[in-house]
């Protein structure tokens, strides 16, 4: 194979010659124009939207932060001991009906 063939112009020329008959026809052009016209008349709901990156980042951050915050809140509630609700000097009273805190029985009496 001659080295001339590998000179850029020769190979390119040969390739361009072979592709000469491949033409972007008028029919194809018309079809593109028709489709372009259709897409520019699209309704609001089928229109393409461009969302800026900062907006996407904010939305993603919110999406991750909200469940995380909720989970932390729930976790902190779970760790609170039930005894925290009663007063420290509250006594336990055992009766036939069950076991009660003294303050609980006092409240019932006041009612």
């Amino acid at each position: 194979m001659s080295n001339d063939f590998w000179k850029d112009e020769r190979l390119g020329e040969r390739l361009r010659e072979e592709m000469n008959e491949t033409l972007f026809s008028e029919k194809m052009k018309k079809a593109v124009v028709v489709r372009a016209r259709e897409t520019s008349k699209r309704s609001f709901w089928t229109r393409e939207l461009t969302i800026p990156i900062p907006v996407v980042a904010l939305a993603l951050a919110a999406l991750i932060a909200v469940p995380l915050f909720g989970w932390r809140q729930a976790a902190s509630l779970e760790t609170k001991p039930l005894t925290a609700e009663r007063q420290p000097e509250d006594r336990l009273i055992v009766s036939g009906a069950g076991v009660f805190y003294e303050s609980q029985l006092n409240k019932e009496e006041e009612r």
């Binding site: 491949t22 033409l23 972007f24 194809m28 593109v32 124009v33």
Partner: peptide, 12 residues
């Protein structure tokens, strides 16, 4: 249409 006239063959 101008764009297609000019670059249509190249792209195809």
């Amino acid at each position: 249409a101008w764009l297609m006239d000019r670059y249509g063959n190249d792209v195809l």
